[in-house]
Design a binder for these strands. Sequence first.
DNA 1: ATGTCAAATAATATCGATATTTTTGGAGAG
DNA 2: CTCTCCAAAAATATCGATATTATTTGACAT
Lengths: 221, 221
Amino acid sequence: MNVMPDRDSKETSATHGAYLKLRELILTGELPPGDKLKIEQLRKLLETGASPVREALSLLTSDMLVERIDQRGFRAAPVGKANFEEILMLRCTLEETALRASIRNADAEWEDRLVLRHHHMQRAGLRKAPDFEDAHKAFHMALLDNAHLPMLERYCSQLYDLNIRYRYLAAGGPSYKKRDIAAEHQNILDAALNRDADAATAHLIDHYRSTGEYLSSQMDG
Amino acid sequence: MNVMPDRDSKETSATHGAYLKLRELILTGELPPGDKLKIEQLRKLLETGASPVREALSLLTSDMLVERIDQRGFRAAPVGKANFEEILMLRCTLEETALRASIRNADAEWEDRLVLRHHHMQRAGLRKAPDFEDAHKAFHMALLDNAHLPMLERYCSQLYDLNIRYRYLAAGGPSYKKRDIAAEHQNILDAALNRDADAATAHLIDHYRSTGEYLSSQMDG
DNA sequence: ATGTCAAATAATATCGATATTTTTGGAGAG
DNA sequence: CTCTCCAAAAATATCGATATTATTTGACAT
């Protein structure tokens, strides 16, 4: 009658599962940019039907990680220097807007959230934990989420993910230079807690520009 | 060698057809905000199968016109004053960025395109043609497309569509005050042709803010 | 009356199979 | 030897049906 004693705590949807798995594969470069994504091949890889795979791919086009060519299937989104630089530029513009709005709405709960996220990120970083990537994103998104601007947050989250992809492609992993990144994060955090919007955005943008230049130099030119 | 006297502009895909039709229905308010979008109901309305409907709805979530609730189907995205104001703010920020980049790349071909789009929009407006809406969007997008920043263009296009929706919801049609809108468009065009980025963005933002305030006043508060 | 629970109903998510379309490979003509 | 065209193969898009999950209904006890 039924299949398994399934643990109800988790998300039980073939489509959503396929979405998360495919997203991971594309972000890490295991499905390389420009590659044709054949339904049958993915169906076997993810051990599910064709319908969930198709829907997951459709959802990934929203995130600009997959391109859909009508009547000709799907492919992993291509990469390039121009694309990378557009992402960098948009992140600077949009995250500055979001961060300033967040600081404008600053309150005690937000500060608590920031401190906590920062702490978790530090812990994960020191232990080289595999969830450092998640903690890093959580900290950055926490900086922005007090703006209460859901569409802007969505854009920033999308762009963040697209940027992760370039990090993996450039370095083969999340092991980009961790030297003074801790200090940069600390500067952003301190400025945000001081509610100094100018300093916070300056530090944030410097943070992006410096890692951006490092990645950009590694690309083709 | 070739196929048929069939125009290549014709899109032969049930999914894409359903996408265009559903998009239209949501933008014009025929499928009202918050409404549950039942597959079976849409399947009959669009005279197609369930798979194309599902995929079209998935694609519309990218455009933020449809919300997907896992295991509980789809619904037309809700509306609200906060949402409208976020759209307005994002449009001002993003279109300013794009317009400045467009002007930075200004050349003769772009100027020609602008003049042409503006002319077509005027013609359609005077004749109250039903394609004024399309011509209006084409003019506004032409202002931005010389930036050669595809993601930014995509965001602007999405936000433009979301704004159309509020116009229809507020007025029951595209008949918002046409009084001095022609003059506003002329000002934007002239400034762009003069490659005066400051003036062009100022006029563009004024244009959005004034129609924005009109719509905002009509909403709930 | 009212709140709870289980059966009935309705809708979604998924599967397997088929129809269409694109791509591939090779034979024949120039 | 190259190009064109047609048949074979592969892949996509779509359909119809089923299994799963959410929602409603109504009986029953409090």
